[in-house]
Design a protein around this nucleic acid. Structure first.
Lengths: 349, 349
DNA sequence: AATAAGAATGCAAACGTTTTCATAAAACCA
DNA sequence: TGGTTTTATGAAAACGTTTGCATTCTTATT
């Protein structure tokens, strides 16, 4: 029983095998398909492994196998209420499937995204989820060549080029606009993050435009305002707006911007919703509890994250944008207390 | 030039070597230590690799190597303002060092943590960061056996058993309590998350107690209140408090709870800080912009995340809690606008 | 009880790199 | 320019598993 020196002093599969009096092959089988090894052998191996404190090396297995048990997730940013819930759900579900998650952020830089995907590929991920529908072809090609399934999470479009699981952001924008219109608002400010590389925001904005157009409301250019995804910046911009020529309602591209808008109103003592209606999109943590509670549409981040994880784990081949590979997970309009009729129309109420 | 069928149709190192007219060994060297291969050869390899779209398989290398280029990060939860900034910073810094991050959450369940660490070890991480100072010995032993460096992030204690990088949470608690005391508050409510498995929260609470005791203020039992890390719950609890026997100030274990407290005050029209002083700990996103802006102490999540990443990447051996392996990253008291003198003492001001 | 069929196990060859050692090619020095 | 040192490359043996095939042990069938 001479000690078979292994890399770090940690026991390998052969040491476990020796101790259990079986071959390495059997130990391997014990871990991968326990049912095909007989109970007595199984027990001996189990004991040997636990005595030795054996931890298998999945990398070595992966070399031979097709699968590494690791999934990639590429997001614009982690530190951000939008994605945190999705990431958490994705990760938890992966854990249930005995997989791990390799995650990286590109800060809305699509060219960095291809570098990241390359780096993930070097680590042999079994699949990868990305956020949104627009990506560099280079990324997609690398993945396709290696037959690694990709899934676009978060946004849904019926005509998506990629398989996707997400919410209908166009519809979300449409719904919040409708809500404002139904309350008699005609002068509405649209506060959105930059839509250039952000199909989610851009779809929402289109949805809002669409509802507005249907209602015969034309939006003057100065009523659509760019703001970063940042409470402070939104607050400041809305502050300016309140001082010169405020609209009667603010349609915010996401709840963070809406929070900023509410704070700006607090600061200037304009009361929400009596003097200013505010509506968001997303239903982030805090939106239910801020004062006034924010009317918004709940984007089901958790369910999306879980579905994406499930799909990725059970995808044995490349996911293609055919039937069944685009899934819309429904969002829900949440009426709370930040919207009412505009002051001028209050009498009509 | 017969095609050397590789696993997924993707080229391997030998195909690149063939095409460049060199041996696989040279290609390997090209990727790992480019300087030791001559310029002309280098160019041929570079071209061959890019023509073929070669992506190296780091797993195969890791098998031979000691290092995988992947670090683990184990957090209580991802979906949480506390950690998101740290995670993001850690991940970004890792990316700079050409490493990737395997992350998992255990939801404050220490026994799940050991399973997670085991699973990370199966993936051959080069090092791992965990949150906080208290962990199962099983986890620590597994890591020690395999000589995998561990770093406790987020909390600092001069007498920590583990190497740690973090803020002095005791001091943070002490400082916010002092601030309240200096403003003449004697009747202070302490709102804290459960401190049982949370050394950060528990250190803060101890710090607050310590300052209070020094000032000769004894805290009646009913003034220290448990609340989850949740805006909604904090808001509700503070709501009750405001209706029966409110203190003059609320010391909140973290900013999230403080946000809930502020919203509760808004809801009942008690104005902050005139009628109620509120102080937090953390300086999360939004704390600077909420109305009133929250007085708090800034915990340098970003710097902690970065330092942890750096240390882990350059640790060639197990980190031990000796000099240099405990680093305190300073936090900063941020005075904003949510604390003033209590109503009864206003005249003294 | 003998035999066939089936189930469990062992042997050894992969998996795609890195690395040691040996060798060939360049560079250096007089 | 010939010898010597240095530098660049190649051949082949690892790294720790999994798996196809061959073998042995069980179990079922008659």
């Amino acid at each position: 029983m001479k000690r078979q020196r292994t890399r770090k002093g940690a026991p390998g599969i052969i040491e476990v095998a020796q101790r259990a009096g079986v071959s390495a092959a059997t130990v391997s089988r014990f871990f991968n398909t326990p049912d095909i090894v007989r109970a007595p052998t199984r027990n001996r191996i189990e004991k040997a492994a636990s005595d030795l404190g054996y931890i298998r090396d999945r990398m070595a297995g992966t070399l031979h196998n097709r699968f590494s048990g690791t999934m990639g997730l590429v997001v614009p940013t982690i530190d951000n209420a939008i994605f945190a819930e999705l990431i958490e759900a994705f990760s938890a579900r992966l854990q249930q499937h005995d997989r791990t998650m390799l995650i990286a952020a590109h800060g809305y830089d699509l060219s960095l995204e291809v570098a990241i995907i390359r780096s993930l590929l070097e680590r042999r991920i079994d699949g990868v989820a990305v956020i949104g529908l627009t990506h560099e072809t280079a990324s997609l090609e690398m993945l396709a060549t290696r037959n690694v399934p990709v899934l676009a999470a978060w946004n849904y479009r019926p005509d998506s080029q990629m398989p996707c699981i997400g919410a209908d952001n166009f519809d979300a924008g449409y719904q919040v606009a409708r809500h404002l219109i139904e309350h008699g608002h005609r002068d509405i400010g649209l506060l959105f993050p930059p839509t250039a590389f952000n199909d989610r925001a851009s779809d929402r904005l289109q949805g809002a435009f669409s509802a507005l157009a249907e209602a015969g409301i034309s939006v003057p250019r100065h009523r659509v305002i760019d703001t970063q995804y940042d409470i402070g910046e939104a607050k400041q911009i809305v502050g300016h707006l309140l001082e010169n020529d405020p609209p009667t309602a603010l349609l915010c591209g996401n709840d963070i911007i809406a929070h900023g808008a509410i704070y700006a109103c607090h600061l200037r003592h304009v009361s929400v919703p009596q003097d200013m209606s505010i509506i968001g999109i997303g239903d982030f943590r805090g939106s239910a509890h801020i004062e006034p509670p924010l009317t918004t549409v709940r984007l089901p981040a958790r369910r999306i994250g879980e579905s994406v994880a499930d799909q990725l784990c059970f995808a044995d081949t490349v996911l293609r944008p055919e039937k069944g590979n685009r899934v819309l997970v429904p969002s829900r309009f949440i009426r709370r207390n930040s919207v009412t009729f505009p002051p001028s129309a209050a009498k009509q109420q």
